[in-house]
Amino acid sequence: MLTNKHATHHPVRRSRRAAIGLLTAAAAVGALAVMPGQASAHTAATARPAATSTQIKVAQRDLNGLAYDAGRVDGVGGPRTKAATQAFQGDRCLDIDGVIGPQTLAGLTSVTKQVQSKAGAPANGDYGAATTNAVKQFQSAHHLTADGIAGERTMKAMGIERLVKSCHTTSALRAKIVNTAKSQIGVTADSHDCVPGKPYSVCDQWCAAFATWVWRESGVDIPFIKFVPSVYDWAVAHHKWVGTSGLATAAPGDLIIFGSAHNRYHIGVVDQVSGRTVRVVSGNTTDPAGSGKHGVYDKTYSLSASVFYGLVRP
């Protein structure tokens, strides 16, 4: 069991928020609350119908043509196809779940059509033989290896953005986020959950206020948010959410949410990742030295879905 005092308080907070209009997703995909009118990337990843075999084959051809190496085009979403899909989703700022759903199919179609247009092939979104031959001709004309695959160098020559920069931060920014978070280690709250003199003091459960302050202080454009479920809602709305299937991609500077779809109760800043463990700097958590105080501490956890619900990318 995690040693923080959120576990008994945040479920109550979520029930209060439900009173102002939160919806519950179907039981088959878990009780995942979203704001009315908002499209949840996580809900889309889990609730959407599975792609047909024909759609998967098109996706596999596109992934292979775009140098993501989905392997054999067989209409089956096996491990290799899933890994290729996750790589594409990560590059395009989509929810990294490895599922070939509507958003991923649309993304693949869009990029493939851009490549086809630049290469002079019919822009149908299907990276077939005609596209491969056209890309080879383009590559030869631009002194590139003529393999027919639109990898990084070929797409750069075409003037096509392969890596969507809006969801990929520099190592310098990530380092600044971690340093900002660690500069507060040892800060403690009083008996009223107030943190005197600190901008993240809300005199209530303050882990979300602390985490979002760290990001703002480091230069990330995120509003002041007091509740963990609200951070999740913001992340989904801004295409910065990575669910449990992407936990292995955690990196320093990410925000990491503890719990599950039913109980998102704590949040912190990823400090270090080592194999299957992660160090997290978080506010309003118990002192690992056993003083009984609640404050900002850097603690180690198992990087697993049994502990964490997902990540928010800066």
Rank of each mutant, 00 (worst) to 15 (best):
M1T: 12
K5C: 04
H6Y: 13
H6R: 11
H6A: 11
H9P: 00
H10R: 12
H10Y: 06
P11D: 05
R13A: 11
R13V: 08
A18V: 09
I20A: 09
G21W: 06
L23E: 14
M35N: 10
A41N: 11
H42Y: 14
R48K: 09
P49S: 13
A50Y: 11
A51S: 15
A51N: 03
T52P: 00
S53P: 00
S53G: 11
S53A: 15
Q55K: 04
A59N: 09
A59E: 11
A59C: 08
Q60I: 06
Q60P: 10
Q60R: 13
D62H: 00
N64T: 05
Y68H: 13
Y68D: 09
A70D: 11
G71K: 07
G71Y: 13
D74C: 12
K82L: 08
A84E: 09
Q86L: 07
A87V: 03
F88Q: 02
R92M: 12
D95H: 13
D97C: 04
V99Y: 11
I100E: 09
G101T: 03
T104A: 06
T112P: 07
S117D: 10
S117Q: 14
K118V: 12
A121G: 10
A129L: 12
A130H: 05
T132M: 15
K136F: 07
S140C: 04
H142I: 08
I149K: 11
I149C: 00
I149L: 14
K156R: 15
A157S: 15
I160Q: 11
E161I: 06
L163M: 06
K165H: 13
T169M: 10
I177S: 02
V178W: 03
I185T: 15
V187H: 15
V187Y: 14
H192V: 06
H192P: 00
P196K: 15
G197N: 06
P199Q: 09
S201K: 01
D204K: 03
A208T: 01
A208C: 07
W213C: 05
W213G: 02
I222R: 05
S230P: 01
V231C: 01
D233F: 07
D233L: 06
W234H: 01
A235L: 02
V236R: 01
T244G: 08
A251S: 15
D254Y: 08
G259P: 04
D271V: 10
V273A: 05
V273H: 06
V273G: 02
V273K: 07
S274L: 02
R276P: 02
R276G: 12
R279N: 13
V281D: 04
T285F: 00
D287L: 05
G290N: 07
G292D: 07
G292P: 03
K293V: 04
H294E: 06
G295D: 07
V296K: 02
V296D: 01
S302M: 01
L303P: 14
S304F: 00
S304Y: 00
A305P: 08
A305H: 11
A305D: 09
G310Q: 03
L311M: 03
R313P: 05
